[in-house]
Write a protein that binds this DNA or RNA. Structure first.
Length: 154
DNA sequence: GCCAACGTTGGC
DNA sequence: GCCAACGTTGGC
């Protein structure tokens, strides 16, 4: 079992969009970065996800989700009207994938970026590295446990 | 709104 | 294959 962090701008897609009904599953489309895509291809059903809101004040982790379905082709790459249309993606070998995720629980207390920065043991976290813009990042088990605790979970 | 850090594109 | 130009991300 692995752990991940997934970023989203809540104005586009928020925790409430995923968590507006019990056990809702939704697809995570629009990833157009190869490194992030490769991490998605590495995801297995049941992996843990930290759901992160970017471009809000303060940026924060707001919920826990799980991988509900492993990577499969993102259909929006072939939709010429879609924002994430990719005319160069070969139909017989789609360039971009998406996964399905499912809300597990809302954090009792969101964990903010400044909080993460000042927490011991998170020094190596990808999110905290200078210039890290990856929208999907691996999280270690140690980091996962520290963050759950920060959020008031066991 | 600014801008540093990145990723991608395309001419050569 | 290099690299300048450009576009995007995302914290501040």
């Amino acid at each position: 079992m692995k752990y991940w962090l997934m970023k989203t701008e809540p104005a586009t897609y928020s925790w409430d969009d995923l968590n507006n009904e019990p056990n809702k599953t939704d697809h995570w489309d629009g990833v157009r970065n190869y490194q992030a895509r490769n991490f998605m291809r590495d995801m297995k059903e049941g992996d843990g996800i930290l759901f992160y809101h970017s471009v809000v004040k303060p940026p924060c982790i707001v919920g826990i989700a799980r991988v509900a379905k492993e990577a499969y082709p993102d259909h929006t790459q072939f939709d010429s009207g879609a924002k994430y249309f990719d005319p160069k993606s070969p139909k017989d070998n789609p360039r971009w994938d998406m996964v399905d995720i499912q809300a597990v629980e809302t954090l009792p207390e969101p964990v903010t970026l400044p909080q993460l920065r000042e927490t011991a043991g998170l020094d190596e976290m990808v999110l905290l590295r200078k210039g890290s813009r990856l929208s999907i990042q691996p999280v270690t088990e140690k980091e996962w446990k520290i963050i759950r605790k920060l959020a008031g979970l066991k």
